[in-house]
C-alpha cells in the first residue's frame, strides 16, 4: 500500500511540475482525489486488506493529506501568480486627472446669512421670514417713524402705485413679529430691503439686512452688548470687542451705532477699517416704547432691544469684496467661486 501511495504521489509531483493553469490543477485534483480518483480507489481496496486495517488506513490518510497539500500549494501559487499577473498588466490610472464633476455654488450672502442664522438659532432665536412689499403702516408708522419724516419721501423710498412700499428696512417686520409671539421673544429676520438711491460701489438700491429683536422683562443695554459680542465672535471666529456710540433711529430709544474692533487687524489699523481700528457694523438700540405698544406689548412691563445687521456689508467684509453691485450682478465669474463644500 505504501508503495502504491508513493507511486501516486510521484505521479502527482511530476504532473504538477508541468501544470501552469488553475484549471489543469483542478482536473488533476479530480483525477487523484475525486469520486473515482486514484487515491479514492485505493481506499476502496482497504476493505479487502486482511489485517492491520488501522495501520494501512493511517498510511493512506497520511498519503492523501500529503497529496492534497501538494495540489493545494500549487493551486495557491497559481492563484497568486494570476493576481500578480493581473496587477502587473493593469493600466496605471492617473488619479491626478480632473474629475469633470462641477461643484455648484451658493450666493455669498446665503452663506453668511446661514452662518449668522445658525449662531442665533443656537441661542434660541427663531428665524422669521418677512415680506419685500410692505404697507406704509408696517414700514413706517408701526416702528414710530413720524408722519412727516424725510424717510417717507419719494426720493428715499420706492413707493408703489398701490400705496405700498418696497420695504426700506427689516424693521418693517417688527410689528408682525411682536404681535405673533408673546414675550419672551427672541427672533431674527433677514430680508431684502430697498432704498431709492443712486447705485455706486458702496450704495445699492437693493440690499439685505438681518434684524433681531429680544423682548422680555428687564432687557438692558448690557444684554444687547452681550448678544452682539457673542454673535460677532462666532462670525469672525475670534473673541471680538464691540463698542456703542450714540445713534438716532425713530424705532429705538436709546439708539446706538455699534462698532466692532477691526477683526482683520485687531484694531491696529488696516484698509478695511480705514486705519481707524473700528468698523461701524450695526445700528441697534432699545426698542422704543411706542413700537412695543404698537406690537401689543406693554412697555411698562417689558423692554427689548433690536439690531439691524447689514448682511451685504458682512458678506463684503467676510469675502473681501469691495463693490456692493457685484452682489446683485449675476456675475458668474465671481459667484462660481463660492463653491459648496
Amino acid at each position: 500500500m505504501q508503495n502504491k501511495i508513493n507511486e501516486i504521489k510521484n505521479y502527482v509531483v511530476e504532473k504538477l511540475s508541468g501544470i501552469n493553469a488553475q484549471a489543469d490543477c483542478q482536473a488533476l485534483r479530480v483525477e487523484i482525489l475525486g469520486k473515482s480518483g486514484k487515491v479514492t480507489e485505493l481506499f476502496k481496496l482497504l476493505k479487502d486488506v486482511p489485517e492491520e486495517k488501522g495501520k494501512v488506513g493511517q498510511i493512506l490518510n497520511a498519503g492523501k493529506a500529503e497529496i492534497d497539500a501538494l495540489i493545494s500549494n500549487k493551486e495557491k501559487a497559481l492563484a497568486n501568480a494570476e493576481i500578480e499577473k493581473e496587477i502587473n498588466s493593469a493600466e496605471k490610472i492617473d488619479i491626478t486627472l480632473p474629475t469633470g464633476a462641477e461643484c455648484g455654488s451658493l450666493h455669498p450672502r446665503t452663506i453668511i446669512q446661514r452662518e449668522i442664522e445658525e449662531v442665533f438659532t443656537s441661542m434660541g432665536f427663531v428665524v422669521e421670514d418677512g415680506n419685500e412689499v410692505e404697507t406704509e403702516y408696517n414700514n413706517f408708522t408701526a416702528v414710530n417713524v413720524p408722519e412727516n419724516h424725510p424717510a417717507r419721501d419719494m426720493q428715499d423710498t420706492f413707493w408703489l402705485d398701490n400705496g405700498e412700499v418696497l420695504k426700506t428696512h427689516t424693521s418693517a417686520s417688527q410689528n408682525r413679529i411682536l404681535k405673533k409671539y408673546a414675550p419672551p421673544i427672541r427672533a431674527i429676520f433677514p430680508g431684502r430691503c430697498f432704498r431709492n438711491e443712486d447705485v455706486d460701489a458702496s450704495h445699492e438700491n437693493t440690499f439685505f439686512q438681518l434684524e433681531g429683536v429680544i423682548v422680555d422683562k428687564d432687557v438692558s443695554v448690557g444684554n444687547l452688548i452681550y448678544f452682539m459680542k457673542e454673535m460677532l465672535s462666532k462670525i469672525f471666529k475670534k473673541q471680538v470687542e464691540v463698542r456703542l456710540r450714540p445713534g438716532f433711529f425713530p424705532f429705538t430709544e436709546p439708539s446706538f451705532e455699534m462698532d466692532v474692533r477691526c477683526p482683520f487687524c485687531d484694531g491696529k489699523g488696516c484698509p478695511t477699517c480705514k486705519n481707524g481700528g473700528w468698523i461701524e457694523l450695526c445700528p441697534c438700540g432699545m426698542i422704543h416704547p411706542q413700537v412695543l405698544r404698537n406690537g401689543g406689548i406693554d412697555p411698562e412691563v417689558y423692554s427689548g432691544c433690536a439690531f439691524g445687521l447689514g448682511l451685504d456689508r458682512m458678506t463684503m467684509l467676510s469675502f473681501n469684496l469691495n463693490d456692493i453691485r457685484e452682489l446683485n450682478s449675476g456675475n458668474l465669474k465671481l459667484l462660481k467661486q463660492f463653491k459648496i463644500k
Partner: peptide, 11 residues
C-alpha cells in the same frame, strides 16, 4: 448647489 452643481444668483 451641492447635488446638481447649480450656481445661485441674486437679482
Amino acid at each position: 448647489a451641492s447635488k446638481f452643481g447649480l450656481n445661485e444668483v441674486h437679482s
